[in-house]
Amino acid sequence: MYITALLVGLLGGVHCLAMCGGLAGSITMGLSAEIRSRPSRMLPYQLAYNLGRILGYGVAGALFGGLGALLVQLDALQIGQRILYGFAGVMMVLLGLYLGGWWRLLEATERWGRALWRRLEPLARPLLPVRTIPRALAVGLIWAWIPCGLVYSVLVTAIATGSPIQGAGVMLAFGLGTLPNLMGIALLAGAAARIAERAWVRQVAGILVLSFGISMLWRLIPWMAWPFDL
């Protein structure tokens, strides 16, 4: 599950560039001209921002993993785990279709998350422009909660673990997978974004993530035999 989360973060990076690229770029633009003149000087700020963002994902994963543990306890243990696992597989299928541009249903989850973001976004304003590394870290922690269908789909997988520790691990692995793309857009200007905008790149990513979802659902088929014996 951790490897899948890592790969989803890496493949879903084409979506990260669209959703979070501007945020990562704003950190760069808030730095002094002297720091921006050399990528090596910008690197600590971008690393701090992304560390905060990944830690924020880990916190969310722990919370949702704890929710999954509660849901499993409310139902028969094995049945509850299978329902959550199946739901995670469906979300992966929807994510693959979303990344490939074939079906945008997952955008609805981003609309639902905007209510939460409206409460969190004002917390980031006093930290902008980013002038220090601790500020970059704090901004990353807050921006981890930006409405994003990609993040929400992996959070469902965190719920399916039924464990706060495993849920945090899933989201940390996902966050590490997104790191190359967001670091790339910050340090390589628009080159990474131009690559991600190509339809075939998004479609390849969509097909691969779609295959993860289908694989999860395929593994669920033997579990569906009554009376739900493994």
Rank of each mutant, 00 (worst) to 15 (best):
M216I: 13
L150E: 07
I27P: 02
L106E: 01
G100T: 03
L217M: 03
L150M: 03
S37L: 13
A48S: 04
G58Q: 02
R38C: 11
L172M: 15
R118P: 12
P147I: 05
L176C: 10
S211K: 05
A60L: 08
G25A: 12
I195H: 05
I27M: 04
A5Y: 01
L182F: 02
T161F: 06
V204R: 06
V93T: 11
A108I: 14
M224W: 15
M91H: 05
M183E: 10
G101P: 06
D229T: 14
L128R: 15
G149C: 06
G30K: 07
L11E: 07
L179S: 07
M1R: 05
A136L: 01
T109D: 04
I142V: 05
I27H: 01
M29E: 13
F228Y: 08
V14Q: 03
F174D: 13
S37F: 09
Y45D: 02
L84V: 09
L105N: 15
V204P: 04
M91A: 12
A108P: 12
A124G: 11
V209H: 00
L67G: 05
W143M: 06
W223K: 14
I142N: 03
A225C: 07
A205D: 06
R41Q: 14
L70K: 09
G86I: 01
I146M: 07
T132K: 09
A205I: 00
W102I: 08
I185T: 06
M29Y: 15
N50R: 03
W226Y: 12
R135S: 03
L116C: 13
V59T: 10
I83F: 05
A168G: 07
L217K: 00
Y57H: 10
A62K: 10
L182G: 04
P180G: 00
L74V: 15
S32L: 05
W103D: 13
R125Y: 14
G167S: 02
R114E: 13
L187K: 04
F64Q: 11
L47H: 00
A173K: 01
L172E: 05
L150S: 04
G58E: 00
E34A: 09
W145H: 15
W102N: 15
A88N: 10
S32C: 05
Q46W: 02
G9P: 10
Y85S: 15
I159F: 06
L123D: 08
V209W: 03
A124K: 01
Y45I: 13
A173T: 14
G13L: 01
